[in-house]
Structures are given as structure tokens and as C-alpha cells.
């Protein structure tokens, strides 16, 4: 047998083995494909019908003039009119301003939460009591919380104003009944209710800092402030960034508190994007207009989410 013939034969054998392997492999692949699809299909179908389809519909509806009562054939396409109407609507503009003011709750909540987290991480006994205590508002329903605060804020009889009367303040603000104080009152409740969540995350961040870092700092004679600035803050930067982003997104979604406590009033002083959306869609039945608000909301959240993706890579490093 010539060398050539031998090598050809060898090649053929190798080819055969390969093709058998490929056959077997493709069968396994087929099985994997089927199994994979079966496992993920309930989620895909659910998300497809209840999220993807609706978000597309939201964009389409934002170009329409329509309400729930009219049939789908009565739909009237109005181009960008709904978006124009947004910028002429005082309720909408006020909502955007209020949403922006509401952003202040995020850093304030974070500062309080960080302080509490630092104190209960190392400097107290009964650590788990404190965790539960500050976490209580997070597990309580916003409806119950809002109702309790509504009574606490009662202008004449509420415990808060009674206390202010008793220490000699004659004209305390009427809180949620006063257009100048209503938004601040709601913000106070929001901060109070968000501290627990932020604190738990800061605590987790603090606990992940290796003890050796502090010990080394002690040996170098670092002050408490040095340790805070040079060890804690850098180590907590991913947590801080995460809380900032989720906090901001959270403020754009505030609804329960407004719906139960103020219904956007008095005189629109506490209206927010989602409340305005809800009122326009389900009270005024202006579907096209409300969908335009929904698009704006979506875009706000999208921008912040994109910032998060970019920022995470750049900023979070230690």
C-alpha cells in the first residue's frame, strides 16, 4: 500500500468518526434546545404578553385620541398632539417639577441610612433589634403607613400639631392640607419609609470590608474621619451608586403614597407623574394623553438605567 493510499484511508476513517460524533452531538443539541425552550417558555410567554406587547401598545396609543368606551374602530390618530398637550398641561408640568423635587429624598435618605448603618454595625448592642426596628416601615404596607401619617398630620387634632401647640408654636403648618407644605410632608414620609432598605444595604457593604484594613489604619494612627473617608466610602461606592440609581427610579414610580394620602392635592401641589398618568387614564379616560405620559415615564427610567450601565463600569471600582 502506498503512503498516499494509507493517508487517504486514514482521512476517511477520521471523517467517519467525526460525522458520527456530529450526529450524536446534534441529537444532544436538539434535546438541549427543546429542554431549554420548555424551561424558559412560561416566563417568555408571560413577559411577552404582559410586558412586551403592552410597552409597544403604549407607544402606539400615545399617538391616538381614544377612550375605553369607544370601540377600537373609533380610534383617531393625532400624531404628536398628545405630546404637545403634555407641555401645555399645568398638571403635567407640575408633576415633572414635583418629581424632580422629590429626587431630594434620595440623598437625604442615603445620608441618614449610612449614619444609622455605621452606628449599629459596630457601636451598639442588640444589633438585630435595631435592624428590625429601622426596617419596619419597609415591610409595612404603604397604605397603612399613609393612613397613620394622615392622622398624625391632622391640622388641629393630630399629635404632631398638638405637640407643636404645646411648645408654644401658635400657627404650625397644616401639613398635607397646606399647598406649601404638602409635598414636603409626603417627602418626609417617603424618607422615613425608605431608610430601612438603604440601611440594610449599607450594613451589608460595611460588613464586607475586611477588618485588616481598619487594623492597619489604627496602626498608622488614622482618625475616625480618616477611616470613614479612606476606607468606608470607597468600599461602599458600589452600594452607594446602586442605591442612588434605584432610589431615583423609585421616585419616578411613587404612586401609593400620593393615591392614599393626598390624591395629588391640595391644588396639584403633590401631583406626580404616575399619579397624573393614573388620573388621566382611569378618571378622565384620556387614553392617548395618558399613554404619552407613560412614554415620558418610560424614557426617564430608560435614561437613568442607561446611566447606570455606563456609570457602573466607570465609577464602581475598588
Amino acid at each position: 500500500m502506498s503512503v498516499d493510499a494509507k493517508s487517504v484511508m486514514e482521512k476517511n476513517v477520521v471523517k467517519n468518526i467525526k460525522s458520527i460524533k456530529i450526529n450524536k452531538k446534534s441529537k444532544i443539541e436538539k434535546n438541549e434546545n427543546l429542554a431549554g425552550l420548555l424551561f424558559v417558555s412560561p416566563m417568555l410567554i408571560g413577559v411577552g404578553i404582559l410586558t412586551l406587547l403592552p410597552i409597544i401598545a403604549t407607544f402606539i396609543l400615545s399617538f391616538a385620541d381614544w377612550n375605553f368606551i369607544m370601540g377600537i374602530t373609533q380610534i383617531n390618530w393625532v400624531g404628536l398632539d398628545n405630546f404637545k398637550a403634555l407641555f401645555e398641561n399645568e398638571g403635567f408640568l407640575k408633576s415633572v417639577v414635583n418629581n424632580l423635587l422629590f429626587l431630594l429624598t434620595v440623598p437625604i435618605t442615603m445620608i441618614f441610612s449610612l449614619l444609622i448603618a455605621i452606628v449599629i454595625d459596630k457601636h451598639v448592642y442588640m444589633k438585630s433589634y435595631f435592624k428590625v426596628a429601622f426596617f419596619m416601615p419597609y415591610i409595612s404596607s404603604i397604605v397603612a403607613i399613609a393612613v397613620v401619617w394622615q392622622v398624625l398630620f391632622n391640622p388641629t387634632n393630630g399629635p404632631i400639631n398638638q405637640f407643636l401647640f404645646s411648645i408654644g408654636i401658635e400657627n404650625p403648618p397644616t401639613w398635607i392640607a397646606d399647598p406649601n407644605f404638602a409635598l414636603i410632608s409626603v417627602m418626609v414620609i417617603q424618607i422615613w419609609a425608605s431608610i430601612g432598605f438603604n440601611m440594610i444595604l449599607f450594613l451589608a457593604g460595611l460588613q464586607s470590608i475586611p477588618k485588616e484594613l481598619y487594623e492597619a489604619a489604627d496602626m498608622d494612627g488614622a482618625t475616625a474621619w480618616d477611616k470613614f473617608k479612606n476606607i468606608m466610602l470607597p468600599a461602599l461606592s458600589p452600594t452607594t451608586f446602586f442605591l442612588l440609581i434605584t432610589g431615583i427610579i423609585g421616585t419616578f414610580k411613587v404612586f401609593d403614597l400620593i393615591a392614599v394620602l393626598t390624591k395629588g392635592g391640595p391644588i396639584n401641589s403633590t401631583t406626580m407623574l404616575v399619579w397624573h398618568l393614573y388620573e388621566s387614564a382611569f378618571v378622565d379616560l384620556k387614553i392617548g394623553y395618558a399613554s404619552a405620559i407613560a412614554v415620558v415615564l418610560f424614557i426617564f427610567v430608560l435614561i437613568i438605567t442607561l446611566l447606570q450601565w455606563v456609570g457602573q463600569k466607570k465609577w464602581v471600582n475598588y
Binding site: 419616578f252 414610580k253 407613560a294 418610560f298
Partner: peptide, 18 residues
């Protein structure tokens, strides 16, 4: 695809869901 839906705020799809 599933990941993308994560950033859709639930309130912006309320009307079509309804």
C-alpha cells in the same frame, strides 16, 4: 429579551394591560 423588559416601569404599561 427578558433582560430588556426589566427596565420597563410597570406603570408605563398599565393602560394596555387594562
Amino acid at each position: 429579551i427578558v433582560l430588556t423588559t426589566f427596565m420597563v416601569p410597570q406603570q408605563s404599561i398599565l393602560i394596555p394591560q387594562f
